[in-house]
Amino acid sequence: SIVTKIISIVQERQNMDDGAPVKTRDIADAAGLSIYQVRLYLEQLHDVGVLEKVNAGKGVPGLWRLL
């Protein structure tokens, strides 16, 4: 499923980069989806406690990390 793919992308990127959070844009590119589509999935995963959003604010790139 797309959700499983997104989780594995975040996991893979974090492992490659010493646990650093992953940008929404990088996840979207790797999943082959638009940034808006991916954001909806990321928000859902956040709501159920799978991911945390590391930063927030208007015009700030979203950074995500697995919990």
Rank of each mutant, 00 (worst) to 15 (best):
R13K: 13
L40P: 10
L51W: 01
A31K: 01
Y36P: 12
R65N: 04
D26E: 07
G49R: 04
L66N: 01
E12S: 11
A20D: 07
V22H: 01
G49Y: 03
S34G: 07
P61M: 12
Q14D: 03
Q11K: 13
K53C: 08
L40T: 08
Y36M: 11
D47H: 14
K58E: 13
L42A: 01
D47V: 13
P61N: 15
K53M: 07
L42F: 01
E12L: 10
A56F: 08
G57R: 07
K53F: 07
R65A: 08
V54S: 03
G57M: 05
G19Y: 15
A20G: 11
Q37N: 06
I27S: 01
V22I: 06
G57N: 06
E12P: 01
V48H: 12
Y41M: 07
L45F: 01
V3K: 11
Q37C: 13
I7K: 04
P61L: 11
V22C: 05
A28P: 00
I6E: 14
R13H: 07
V22N: 00
I27D: 02
L40R: 12
A30F: 04
I35A: 05
S1E: 12
N15G: 09
P61V: 10
L67P: 12
T4K: 14
I27E: 01
A56R: 09
R65L: 11
A30H: 05
V60P: 10
S1G: 11
D18W: 10
Q11D: 04
V48I: 15
A20C: 09
L40M: 11
V50F: 05
G59V: 04
K23P: 13
V3P: 03
L33N: 03
V54R: 01
I6H: 00
P21W: 15
R39D: 06
W64R: 01
K53Y: 10
N15V: 09
E43G: 04
L42G: 00
I9N: 00
G32M: 07
V22M: 07
L33F: 04
I27W: 02
I2L: 09
R25V: 10
D47G: 10
K53Q: 06
V50G: 00
N55V: 08
T24I: 03
W64L: 01
D29P: 01
L45V: 02
G62P: 15
I7Q: 02
I6V: 03
K53D: 09
G19N: 08
Q14L: 04
I2R: 04
T4R: 14
D18C: 15
A56V: 11
D29T: 11
G57Q: 07
G57D: 08
V60C: 13
I6S: 00
E52C: 11
D26N: 03
A56H: 11
D26H: 06
Q44N: 07
L66E: 03
M16Y: 08
S8G: 10
G32Y: 03
L40G: 08
L63M: 12
I9R: 01
K5P: 00
A28S: 04
D17T: 15
E43Q: 09
R25P: 04
N55L: 07
L67W: 09
K23Y: 05
A28Q: 02
I2E: 03
R39G: 09
E12W: 13
V50E: 02
Q14Y: 08
E12C: 14
K5H: 07
H46K: 11
A56W: 08
G59K: 06
K5S: 05
E43L: 06
V50I: 13
Q44E: 10
L67G: 09
G32E: 05
A30K: 06
G49C: 05
D29V: 12
V48K: 13
D18I: 07
V3N: 04
V22Q: 05
L42M: 02
L67D: 05
K5E: 05
S8W: 11
I27M: 01
D18S: 12
L66A: 04
R25D: 09
V38D: 00
D26W: 06
E12H: 10
Q44V: 13
Y36L: 10
G32L: 03
V60Q: 14
L40S: 07
P61Q: 14
A30L: 08
V60F: 11
I35F: 07
V60G: 15
L33H: 02
Y36D: 13
S34C: 08
A28H: 15
L40I: 14
I6D: 00
I2N: 04
L33R: 01
L67M: 11
A56G: 12
I35S: 04
Y41D: 00
P21D: 02
A28E: 03
L67I: 14
V48N: 11
V54E: 02
I2C: 10
G49Q: 04
G62S: 15
K53I: 05
I2P: 03
L67V: 14
E43S: 06
R39A: 12
L40F: 13
Q37M: 14
L33Q: 03
V48R: 13
A56N: 11
G32R: 06
S8E: 11
R13W: 06
K53T: 04
Y41I: 14
K53R: 10
L67T: 13
D29L: 11
I7P: 01
D18A: 11
G59F: 06
K53L: 08
L40D: 06
L63N: 06
D47E: 13
T4N: 12
R25Q: 13
R13V: 05
G59D: 09
L33G: 01
I6N: 06
V54G: 01
I9M: 03
I27L: 04
T4L: 13
S34F: 15
L63K: 08
T4P: 05
D47P: 00
I6K: 00
A31V: 13
V38Y: 00
E12T: 11
I6M: 02
L33A: 02
G57C: 07
S1V: 09
M16F: 08
T4A: 14
G19C: 10
K5R: 12
Q44C: 15
G19S: 05
D18P: 10
E52R: 04
S8D: 08
A31G: 02
G49T: 01
K53N: 14
M16H: 10
S1K: 10
G49N: 03
V38N: 00
L40H: 10
I9E: 01
T24V: 03
Q44K: 14
I6T: 00
I7N: 00
K58C: 14
L51Y: 01
L45C: 02
S34N: 09
G62Q: 13
I9K: 02
V54C: 07
T24N: 01
L42N: 00
G62W: 10
R65F: 12
R13A: 07
G19W: 05
L42Q: 00
K53A: 05
L63P: 02
L42T: 15
P61W: 12
W64E: 02
A20F: 06
Q37E: 13
E12R: 10
Q44F: 15
S1W: 12
V50P: 03
L45D: 00
V10Y: 01
E12M: 12
A28K: 02
G49H: 06
V60E: 15
D26L: 04
L51K: 01
G49D: 03
R25T: 09
S1H: 12
T24L: 03
H46D: 02
I27H: 01
A30V: 04
A28V: 03
H46Q: 11
V38G: 03
W64T: 01
T4F: 12
E43K: 08
